[in-house]
Each structure stands twice: as C-alpha cells, then as structure tokens.
Amino acid sequence: MTETVKEYLRIDGTEDDKLLGFLIDSAKEYLTGAGVKGTDSKRYELAVIMLVTHWYENREAVGKVLGKVQLGLQSIILQLKAEGLKSE
C-alpha cells in the first residue's frame, strides 16, 4: 500500500516511507475505530489513501479529519459498514 500512497502523493524516494507506513497503519486503525473491518474493497483502500493524504499534507492536524475530507470519508465509511451488515 505504501507504493500506492507514494504514487498518489507523487513522492519519489524513500525518505518518507517510515512516516507513510505509520500514517497507513493509523488510517486503518481509524477505520476500525469507525466500525469498518479491513477489506479488499477499493473503497477501503481509497479511504486509507484519503486519510493518509490529509494527514501527510496537514501534519499539524494528525489524528483529526477536517472539512471536505471528512464528508467524503463519512460517505465511504457508511457504505463499507452497510456492506458489512449485509454479509453478516
């Protein structure tokens, strides 16, 4: 997933790999805390990328999700949670 995030953020090199790995793990924990189970869904991957991008570009606000990102993320989280309910 790190390579996908680096491609999305247009990052070359390996200087930020450790930070990106931390942000990816944090994003997955965030989604778990929001009631979303990890899946192979592209929407899950997009949600992780959205969070990582937001936190990477707004480092002073790590741990918080602000503005437009929050609205898009909420929509994805609700869809993924609804899918989880169907499969139970």
Rank of each mutant, 00 (worst) to 15 (best):
W55K: 01
A82V: 07
Y30H: 02
S75V: 04
I77N: 03
G33M: 00
E83W: 01
R43P: 08
T14V: 11
E60F: 12
Q79R: 13
R59G: 15
L51R: 02
A61K: 13
L19C: 06
Y44I: 11
D25I: 04
Y44E: 05
G35V: 00
T2L: 13
L73I: 10
E15Y: 11
R59A: 14
G21T: 09
G67Q: 05
K86Y: 04
G84A: 02
D17F: 06
K6A: 00
A61Q: 15
Q79E: 15
W55T: 05
I11N: 02
L31Y: 00
V69N: 06
S75T: 09
M50G: 13
D25Q: 10
I76H: 06
K81M: 06
Q70P: 09
Q74F: 09
L9C: 06
Y56V: 05
S87P: 00
E60P: 07
N58H: 15
L71F: 08
E83P: 02
Y30G: 00
G67S: 08
Y56G: 01
L66Y: 12
D16W: 09
D25R: 10
M1H: 06
A47C: 03
S41F: 10
M1G: 05
S41K: 12
K37V: 13
K81T: 05
G84K: 03
A34T: 04
G21N: 08
G13L: 04
A82L: 09
I24H: 00
L51E: 05
V65E: 05
G38S: 14
T39D: 09
K6G: 01
L23A: 03
L71H: 10
T39Q: 07
Y8V: 01
A34I: 05
G13D: 08
Q79W: 12
G21S: 09
E60Y: 12
E45L: 12
M1K: 07
G38E: 15
E45Q: 14
Y30P: 00
L78H: 11
E83L: 03
L23E: 04
N58S: 11
T2M: 08
Y8F: 06
L19A: 07
D40A: 14
D40E: 15
L9G: 02
E29I: 15
R10E: 04
A82Q: 06
D40H: 13
L51N: 01
E3D: 06
L66V: 14
S41C: 12
R59P: 11
K64Y: 11
E57M: 10
I77L: 04
L51Q: 01
E29W: 11
V52G: 03
R43E: 13
G84Q: 03
T39K: 09
L66E: 11
E88L: 10
M1I: 10
K81Y: 05
G33K: 01
V48C: 08
K42S: 14
T14L: 07
L73P: 02
D16E: 12
K64N: 12
T32I: 14
L23N: 00
A34K: 06
G35C: 07
Q79Y: 13
